[in-house]
Computed example of a mutant assay.
Amino acid sequence: MNRTVRRLADGREIIYFDEEPRERTAVDTRDLPQVAAASEIRLDPLSGEWVAMAAHRQTRTYKPPADLCPLCPSRPGKPSEIPESEYDVVVFENRFPSFSQHVTGEPGSVDGLGLVPTAPGRGRCEVVCFTSDHNGSFAKLSPGRVRTVVDAWADRTEGLSAVDGVEQVFPFENRGEEIGVTLSHPHGQIYGYPFVTPKTRRALEVARAYHDQHGKHVLGDVLEAERKTGARVIAEGEHWTAFVPPAARWPVHVLLVPHRQVPDIPALHDDERDDFAQVYLDVLRRCDALYDRQLPYIAAWNQAPVRVDRELGWLHLELFSILRAPDKLKYLAGSESGMAVWINDATPEQIAERLRAAG
């Protein structure tokens, strides 16, 4: 993989990840104002969870026509976020970030009362374009291209982990208008959070308690049980297994777990990265065949925090969809939204059988 770092017109960093040697010299000719992020985080005293305020994102790009897509390569008279005329995989700083290295200010509290702590939303948000093909999708990538994406994720996880104040790195992909995607070009994002996220914090607490009682990692035991029974396994390789979690919350819900405990993507060795590409493409193609249409989904990497409890982390990818039938969505109703108690309309075994049959 060849890595080239350049700058956009407003100073943001853009990184090209090429599968063959290429010279990247195109210049961003746009007249762009400097990014003015004003993110703030507030600690909810009732839940103990940080909430981000990013009002400047109200003006971000929203469903542009295909010929004005900001993630396509630049063309004569139509410059985009990527100055080059083609690319393999590219990563650049988000123009409308939820968290930014350039946020100013000092820690304080709401109204100066000390009850609700506040702090600048310092972190970093990046966009990852998987292909220059506007009409493509992750499921249509070649295994070699997926490997390039994995290497880019690993590179950026290491890069964001070194950013001052970043406590957790979260690569993810949102696909489909039903999910809320406003740019249809195949892409994902990477967040460098200034705190450990609530979901990760809870998972680490569970992992610690399980290890204290059993001397083993809970995800390792779940993985072993799923591979043993096979009732919910969707796809399996030499180094990865994809299965529907035994307490699945969503109408389509899959975990991809490496057989070896590693804290994050950079810790994967070459064979594990190659095997992931094969297993993940198998899962995605089954997902798209499930309803004979592109499945809207969120694919979320669960990585260990940057500085704390890394020994309790076990890297895995969680993919889930709100589509419960070809033309029906699962909405979060009162129980899910109000009390965080999920009620699934299908059993994990039924979900797994449907995905296996879709193959």
Rank of each mutant, 00 (worst) to 15 (best):
Ala139Cys: 04
Glu349Gln: 15
Tyr210Phe: 13
Trp314Val: 00
Lys63Ile: 07
Pro73Ile: 01
Tyr16Trp: 07
Lys216Gly: 02
Arg24Pro: 01
Lys328Val: 14
His269Tyr: 12
Leu223Ile: 06
Phe96Asn: 04
Thr148Ala: 04
Ala325Pro: 13
Ala235Thr: 02
Gly359Cys: 09
Ser74Thr: 13
Tyr297Ser: 04
Pro73Lys: 02
His187Tyr: 02
Lys199Tyr: 12
Gly114Gln: 09
Phe172Ser: 08
Pro305Glu: 11
Leu281Tyr: 06
Glu318Tyr: 00
Glu173Pro: 00
Glu173Asp: 01
Tyr280Leu: 11
Gly338Asn: 02
Gly192Ile: 03
Ala203Gln: 08
Phe96Tyr: 12
Glu13Phe: 05
Gly188Gln: 03
Ala203Asn: 12
Cys129Tyr: 07
Asn344Leu: 06
Arg324Thr: 05
Leu68Gly: 05
Val254Trp: 03
Asp309Ser: 14
Leu295Gln: 11
Leu355Asn: 06
Glu126Ala: 01
Ala36Gly: 06
Glu318Val: 04
Ala289Met: 09
Asp327Tyr: 13
Ser85Asp: 13
Lys199Met: 15
Glu177Met: 02
Ser161Glu: 13
Arg293Ser: 10
Gln168Asp: 10
Thr200Glu: 12
Leu295Lys: 09
Asn174Ala: 07
Val51Asn: 10
Ala209Tyr: 10
Glu106Phe: 12
Ile351Arg: 09
Asp270Lys: 13
Asp18Arg: 03
His239Val: 01
Thr25Val: 15
Glu318Gln: 10
Thr241Ile: 02
Ala289Phe: 08
Ala152Arg: 04
His253Asn: 15
Gln278Glu: 15
Ile190Tyr: 00
Phe130Gly: 11
Leu268Trp: 06
Trp301Asp: 15
Ala139Ser: 15
Val233Phe: 01
Val206Arg: 10
Ile82Trp: 02
Ser109Gln: 12
Ile15Gly: 01
Phe170Trp: 14
Asp274Ser: 11
Arg42Gln: 11
Ile15Ala: 02
Leu8Arg: 07
Val279Leu: 07
Leu71Ala: 08
Arg324His: 06
Val116Arg: 03
Thr229Gln: 04
Arg285Thr: 07
Asp155Gly: 05
Leu319Cys: 05
Ala37Thr: 09
Asp221Glu: 14
Thr118Ile: 13
Asn94Glu: 12
Pro326Ile: 10
Arg122Gln: 11
His134Lys: 00
Arg6Ala: 02
Leu295Ser: 10
Arg60Asn: 04
Pro120Cys: 09
Pro45Ser: 03
Val252Gln: 09
Asn302Leu: 12
Pro64Ile: 08
Thr148Leu: 10
Leu332Gly: 09
Glu236Ile: 02
Val218Glu: 09
Glu177Thr: 02
Ala38Phe: 04
Trp342Arg: 01
Arg147Asp: 08
Leu71Thr: 06
Ser98Met: 11
Gly188Ala: 08
Arg60Thr: 01
Arg249Gln: 15
Phe243Leu: 06
Glu81Val: 04
Gln168Val: 04
Phe92Trp: 03
Ala26Ser: 07
Leu290Ala: 12
Ile265Ala: 11
Phe130Ala: 15
Lys63Glu: 12
Val206Ala: 13
Gly188Cys: 03
Leu183Ile: 14
